[in-house]
Design a protein around this nucleic acid. Structure first.
Lengths: 348, 348
DNA sequence: CGGCAGGATGTTTACGTCAACATGGACGGC
DNA sequence: GCCGTCCATGTTGACGTAAACATCCTGCCG
């Protein structure tokens, strides 16, 4: 067998390009332009011709090349979602809502995960943003994470932020954290509790801070003493640790946890220490996860609508892409108190 | 002020195209090709020239146009993920792992959510697949959902499936469902329980079926009676309903729930009926959610590594894209039994 | 029956990038 | 000192699509 001479054909990935409009045009005996017209549903094409082209498309297995289309039209019909902590309850819900809202508009979602910039590597979001590939961006990470990352938003790129932080220069959509925390606190107060303890989220989180401040303001407005804050990190484990301390204090009769996961850890701590819920201690969470209705006892909590947040964010972003002008006022979606079995009047 | 005459400028969305290589080239006083070479990190460029080009890029705010690149190279450097039920624990975890694995390779993730084909609308995945926009696809939905959807995979598109179903013609990556269910069942048996009840997932789900069969086989191999199966739908509520029935039967001392969420509902039912866990009834789940360690009592469960699944899926897909040949054998990842406090020996 | 409107279809061109080839200058070997 | 090499850089063209413009045909009006 003779030594194989260098083949001129591209050796590597065997990049078979699919059939193009020209192929369809040849097959149907029309010009490429007519194929384009059919592909785009233009009306000024004879029915017979249209049928012929459609048949040819099917025969050769034509699929429009989105890259060529994007190049030609100067539009990608896709939006990026900068996200970290994707598997988080709220984030995955919101992402799902964004995806659902975007599909009917004919846009695609490009995921731009923010990874820790390990040893100077560029983060995913950064490298993707560094090239033109999306028509707009929805930011689903908290302010402090964005600050830490080396991401710089390209000038002129439409952006919508999902967060409550006031520091952003971009349109913002979020649930009304303050509203929810006030509802939770008021609910416990109205049951007759003298005051309400609080397990807060991490202080870097704007949402956590917002909930904490609103809890505090609600207590002060009612003229109650404000107990010291316990600080968690959203995780069940941190709720458990805080709960262990709370359970040891007989004065504690009502606790508002800044999310349902910490509430879960708290419940476990109370059970372990033999404190009855809600007979001795009432607990309110925040989020209303699927699981919360089946915690033991079923958790009273604040429901926020991640679906609505996702929908509004997409709406605002698409409007900005369309018109080139930023949406005006921030959007704050109301929350809802869901009363289940973890709250009751304090022991007599 | 005179009536404004029709401006020749494009009225609509004010589609400002960003600066292109030509702009950078003009600014730097070099040819477009040299800009291209710099942008792609080619070595055969004089250092001084490179610096000049880099500076020009920064000055004009150049970002490469990925559409033009994709068109030119015949490659999109992006992979699609066909997904339904994104907010689900396992799916969001897997998606995150996929995204993380894909970024270092310089690929992007395009989300292709499967929406119910309401009144003949095309689903997201379908419409996206219908055009060339990705180099490969990872399918993260179950066989029966794919069958129901009107999705047809384009011929020749590299595909990897995350599922255990044997019916696929594509490379498959998944956790070893049978392995996990066998571990769970054996664990309970080894504690001294006469037999093990089972709350199964929906029968359309291949994973659910696989777990059920393995549970049954394990019992039979040990010569135990096989109790009737209770069928749930993965939700905590369905676990609760099944649990209500189980709690009423004093013969029940050990239950294997096909996922942690149903186990949660089961726990609630047992508490409500006053049956002690694990003193009277032992419970094992499947998944090892973040929350499971803080259920009451902390749940013994089967941990599966969604991270590994995502990594392997990406690896297989990229290899297929690269070489054009399908990966060979299905990959089954082992599971792990995590023993916590919801299991113990049966009451004497 | 000339002329003209309007619809169907074809031709040209540009979108931004990069492989392939072309050019031109510096340097080393003989 | 001549020629061949190698390297930096420039020029050309093609990827697939669709807007803009050109052409041709049909049919209707005066």
């Amino acid at each position: 067998m003779p030594r194989q001479t260098a083949t001129p054909s591209p050796s590597g990935p065997a990049r078979r390009r699919g059939p193009s409009m020209a192929d369809v045009a040849r097959e149907a005996g029309v010009s490429g332009q007519t194929v384009s017209r059919v592909a785009n549903g233009k009306t000024n094409v004879d029915d017979a011709t249209r049928e012929r082209v459609l048949a040819a498309m099917r025969r050769v297995g034509y699929r429009p090349n989105s890259a060529a289309r994007a190049l030609r039209n100067g539009q990608f019909r896709s939006i990026g979602v900068i996200i970290s902590a994707l598997p988080t309850f709220g984030n995955s819900r919101t992402l799902d809502a964004i995806a659902a809202a975007v599909v009917p508009e004919g846009f695609s979602i490009i995921l731009m995960p923010v990874t820790r910039p390990t040893q100077g590597e560029v983060t995913g979001a950064f490298s993707t943003l560094n090239e033109q590939a999306v028509d707009g961006v929805i930011i689903l990470i908290e302010q402090h994470q964005l600050d830490q990352s080396e991401i710089e938003l390209p000038h002129g790129l439409p952006v919508v932020v999902i967060d409550s932080s006031a520091r952003y220069d971009y349109p913002v959509v979020d649930n009304d954290q303050a509203d929810g925390a006030a509802r939770a606190t008021s609910h416990l107060l109205s049951l007759g509790h003298a005051t309400v303890w609080h397990i807060a989220g991490p202080p870097q989180s704007y949402s956590a801070e917002r909930r904490r401040k609103s809890w505090q303001a609600t207590l002060e407005r009612a003229g109650r003493t404000v107990p010291p804050v316990l600080v968690g990190d959203w995780s069940p484990e941190s709720g458990y640790q805080a709960g262990l301390r709370l359970a040891a204090d007989p004065a504690v009769t009502a606790v508002f946890a800044a999310n349902d996961q910490m509430a879960l850890g708290l419940l476990r701590a109370l059970h372990e220490k033999g404190r009855g819920v809600p007979s001795e201690v009432s607990v309110v969470g925040f989020d209303d996860m699927d699981e919360s209705a089946h915690f033991w006892p079923p958790l009273t909590t604040i429901r926020q609508s991640f679906e609505a947040v996702g929908r509004h964010a997409v709406e605002a972003l698409l409007a900005e892409i369309e018109t080139g002008t930023e949406a005006g006022e921030p959007v704050l979606l109301p929350t809802e108190l869901v009363i289940r079995s973890s709250t009751a009047a304090p022991p007599a």
